[in-house]
Design a protein around this nucleic acid. Structure first.
Lengths: 209, 209
DNA sequence: GAAGTTTTTGACTTCATAGTCAATAATGGA
DNA sequence: TCCATTATTGACTATGAAGTCAAAAACTTC
């Protein structure tokens, strides 16, 4: 059997041969995500990542192409887990107003542990602007998914005359999404939990007459 | 006359002696502000500043202590000029609703030239978090001044039954300020002028029944 | 014109960081 | 047991940036 074919077969089954990895890729990705989330891309050095993950430089480079790629994977992971958790939480409520309340308080629930870091996607949007296409796409996807959830909830609220119909559900969804974006800035700039709670309460209450 | 006295006199009149500065401090500060505004603190290198101001390194260091001090001075300058311009614009309107409309559209007026950079204070809040006390204070002052202007306008609007009284003027002011913070994130993350305009229009219209 | 003072200038130092290289270790399969 | 392959390891490189130093230049006053 010619060598190149042998190589292909081995390549195909490569995880059942050769030295196995000593660290958990998922765990390393999660820890990297927390690091990037807390400090941003630029301010997180590769040394920060190796220290927090306890994985040596070359091993990280081996699995994740480079710092930016690792960052992108972390951002995607964040979006997936955030949206999933939010949808799960919202689906537990039946009334549109209760669903909205669940959405409103989600950021506050996590205030102490993570809200002080703000939303990872928002932070990334601010840090990168529109410089990095992939980051921009990821952020847009996050916002769009969030807004869609809001829109559905608001629409059913309107159908039950619980929410004003002076504006369309998409307009109101964009508006509430925007309010939550703003709350992130408040949190990052050191506003108190009470202040943020009050602002979001007003923003959400004002659309339900 | 003793030497030390001679020294004191010279020191006192020092601007009418010795080599005069070749560059305009105000101009350099303004250009630095635009640089920091567009790129943020970390991503602006001192070389960026010397290039854009056409002032050599040591000359900049001579006038502004270091990079961070220059940044702080730029941020203060930004707040002063922004608030002044806004107050001037608002004072030209007499009706509270027209004043509010002026506040709402101020960010949009500058969309093409500067809005893509967002608000310098917001950017700084996001970049520094609460790490740097002086930056935090400056950002808080900016937000507070802005919110105060909103509160006054809303209050007079409420007195004339033009704005809902279901919420206090301070609550509504915080809410609208928050909406404008959110609009900054939208702008930075690449949203269109129309989208931002629509969101702010809804947020401002919803409080005036 | 000399003295004294401040600005300008460019070279220099120090430090942190992203990414690379080559040697070594560990594993499964033959 | 040996081979092929991949993971680990630490040393190394290259780059860019903040801040410093000392010499030269320009100006005012005497």
């Amino acid at each position: 059997m010619p060598k190149f074919f042998d190589f292909m077969v081995k390549k195909c089954y490569h995880d059942s041969m050769s030295r196995p990895r000593e660290f958990d890729i998922n765990r390393a990705l999660h820890q990297s995500m927390e690091m990037f989330w807390a400090k941003g891309f630029k301010s997180t050095s590769f040394e920060d990542l190796t220290r927090t993950t306890q994985v040596k430089k070359q091993s990280l480079y081996g699995v994740f192409e480079d710092k930016r790629t690792l960052f992108l994977k972390a951002l995607t992971r964040y979006r997936e887990q955030s949206i999933t958790a939010l949808e799960e939480r919202v689906s537990r409520e039946s009334s549109p107003l209760d669903k909205l309340e669940a959405i409103r308080t989600i950021p506050l629930l996590a205030y102490d542990e993570t809200m002080c870091n703000g939303c990872f996607a928002v932070n990334s949007a601010l840090e990168f602007g529109t410089d990095d296409e992939a980051v921009t796409r990821e952020v847009e996807m996050m916002f769009a998914q969030f807004e869609q959830l809001l829109e559905q909830t608001i629409r059913s609220g309107q159908e039950q005359q619980l929410i004003t119909t002076r504006f369309s559900s998409t307009e109101l969804a964009a508006c509430l999404n925007n309010a939550i974006l703003g709350a992130n800035i408040l949190a990052k700039s050191g506003a108190s939990r009470e202040k943020i709670d009050s602002v979001l309460r007003t923003a959400f209450a004002v659309i339900a007459p």
